[in-house]
Design a protein around this nucleic acid. Structure first.
Lengths: 243, 243
DNA sequence: CGAGCCGTTGAGGGGATTCAAGCTCAGTGG
DNA sequence: CCACTGAGCTTGAATCCCCTCAACGGCTCG
């Protein structure tokens, strides 16, 4: 899932001033709502960070005081239950806003971990606070993102947490197709990660992957990548919904 | 779940002016952020509505243009999948805000249905828009509610959509305990409603209810009510987490 | 009273888990 | 160079949990 590195420094400008003008995800990201004048005021305070696969961005309970915009990669939201098992409750990708709780001076609600190499912009809470009073477009954009996350969570329950394992797995593939990389490949989770998303054992996940390979739904491309046959996937899903 | 009727007319004032001053849920509801002066400006536009068990408040795709504050009762958020089956993805109770999407001029994201007799305040979008520019406390409160809903959704996945059926059922009881009525009883869903929440068949739900009665976790009080033994519930959960 | 909905209980089957054994592959150190 | 190791993936066989199908009883309502 290595998207091309996104330049965050103004071309031909001051290399120290990290700004979002040239950022590819700006259109779809939080600060797309701001004009250049507003961007000029804030770019100094935004840090761009990189995380490797498996690295945590933050943990549930942390009081980080910053939100993140995802510039590249995929992250997962985890919760651990009292009996010790961990469950993945949501994914986020390119352009998504993460850690909005911080804006409300709350502790983070989930553990967030990088599924692939990840690049984020780290935005301090205070920055949004001061901007928020002036720029109502920013607040609107914020609420939009909150609602999108809520919508994601609801459809996660409806699509990935019900029905037989085969259908859940196919729906997961459908969803991973939204995070396709520039070579047209999807991120292929480890079998135990699939298990944490779909509430399966790694063995069952493995059996289903084998089945999807045999039916041509996916074709493995290395251990963490695969090519998805959209037509075969759709047909397989219809078959599941019928029989 | 019949909470005592909440007076929404100002005592000794103009009976036509439906206001929230005396509303019990005001402290915990959206407009708790406003002062009396602001309330005076808006109370004319807020309608209080009642719904019977099973009645829909709105449907996914509707463009209603209003948000709702729940004054009494329980509602469920439903999604129907392509294969026709319906799944309950979230519950909301007293004091919760419903239909925030409308503030963003979006269609409603879920079907929302009354689980018990329900009383709500219906608040037009335009009202919040005009207030929002002036009252930043309201916006803050709004975001708070958005985040709470998101948190609910995540814990729904983590608690009610994973593990063996018995544990999921016990966790549902735990959650229904949050919506306890004034007689100390919980709302007891129909068996097929439990199934839609936990992804079970009604038969399995029924067997588990029988088991909970035999172990003393619940005691039925009529067909839609039950008394919950918090201690027995906690012990049963620990037993599940262990063995 | 019959009809229909809801809840309960039983018997049998199927799908996912559990337990177990190999397998590949990358990293390590002799 | 190659055995050694460990993590992740796969596959098999047996078990168990939950579903399916079925019958029956209580209850409300037309």
């Amino acid at each position: 899932m290595s998207h091309p590195p996104i330049p965050i420094y103004r071309q031909g400008g001051h290399p120290q001033q990290a700004i979002c003008t040239a950022c590819e995800v700006r259109r779809s990201a939080l600060f797309g709502a701001l004009d250049e004048a507003a961007l000029d005021r804030i770019h100094l305070h935004i840090a761009d960070l990189a995380f490797d696969t498996g690295e945590p961005l933050y943990a549930r309970g942390d009081r980080g005081g910053a939100v993140f915009t995802l510039r590249a990669g995929i992250v997962r939201f985890e919760r651990s239950t009292e009996d010790g098992s961990r469950r993945i409750v949501r994914l986020a990708g390119r352009g998504d806003l993460i850690g909005q709780e911080a804006l409300l001076q709350q502790a983070y609600a989930d553990d967030v971990v990088a599924c692939t190499p990840v690049q984020v912009c780290r935005i301090p809470r205070s920055l949004v606070d001061t901007l928020g009073e002036a720029e109502s477009a920013l607040l609107r954009e914020l609420m939009q993102r909150w609602q999108r996350a809520l919508d994601d969570a609801a459809s996660w329950v409806a699509e990935l947490a019900m029905g037989p394992a085969r259908r859940r797995m196919l729906r997961l593939m459908l969803r991973l197709g939204d995070y396709i990389d520039e070579q047209g490949c999807i991120w292929m989770p480890r079998r135990d990660e699939m298990g944490a998303m779909l509430d399966l054992t790694p063995e069952t996940a493995s059996r289903l992957v084998t089945w999807m390979r045999q039916t041509g739904v996916i074709e493995l491309r290395g251990s963490r990548l695969a090519r998805l046959d959209a037509g075969a996937l759709r047909r397989a899903l219809e078959e599941q919904d019928a029989g």
